[in-house]
Amino acid sequence: APPAEQLHPLQNRWALWFFKNDRSRAWHDNLQLVTKVDTVEDFWAMYSHIQLASKLSSGCDYALFKDGIEPMWEDSRNKRGGRWLMSLAKQQRHSELDRLWLETLLCLIGESFEEHSREVCGAVLNIRTKGDKIAVWTREAENQTGVLHIGRVYKERLGLSAKTIIGYQAHADTATKSNSLAKNKFVV
C-alpha cells in the first residue's frame, strides 16, 4: 500500500452497512457494520471486495452513512430528515442498478453537492423482488434549498431524463404510512 501521505483523504469517514433479512431475528440484529473508509483508495478497496448490488439476494440492503450516523430513521441525525427516492423497475437490476448505486456512492464520497453536502447523511440500497430502490438521505426535510439542490444534482449525476421524476419524502411521513403512500414533499 502507498504511504499514508500519498493517499487521498475524503472529507468524511463513511461506514458501509449490510442488512440481510432474517425474520427470526430483530431488525437491528440483521444490520451489520462492514467497514469504514476515509480515503479514495480505501473506498475502492472496499468496493472491489463486496458483492455488486445486482448480485445480492432479495431482502438485502447496503447503506453507506457518515461515520456516527446509523442507517435508520430513529438516529437523531436522520429523524428530522428525509430521502430522495429512486424506485427501479425489475428489469433495471441487470441493466442499470450497479451503475446507479456506484454513481450514488461517488456523489457521497466526492461531496458532490457543494456546501449542501453537509446535509447528506448517507444512502440506502434496497434489493427487493418487487423492484429495487436507491435513496439519498438528508438530515433536515425542512431545508428546502439544500434538499432541492441535492435532488437536482443527484438526478443529473444519475443521468435521468427530464421526464423521469424523483421524489423526496420526509422520514416522519414514511414512518407513519406504507412507502407507496408517503407523499412527496419535493420532486425534481
Binding site: 500500500a1 502507498p2 475502492w44 478497496a45 472491489s48 461517488l106 466526492g110 458532490s112
Partner: peptide, 20 residues
C-alpha cells in the same frame, strides 16, 4: 480545505494496483 472529488477523478483510482 474541503475535499471534493469529481467522478472522473474518483474513477481513475478504481483499478489502481494499490487498491486490489
Amino acid at each position: 480545505g474541503k475535499k471534493q472529488y469529481d467522478r472522473e477523478f474518483l474513477l481513475d483510482f478504481q483499478f489502481m494496483p494499490a487498491c486490489i
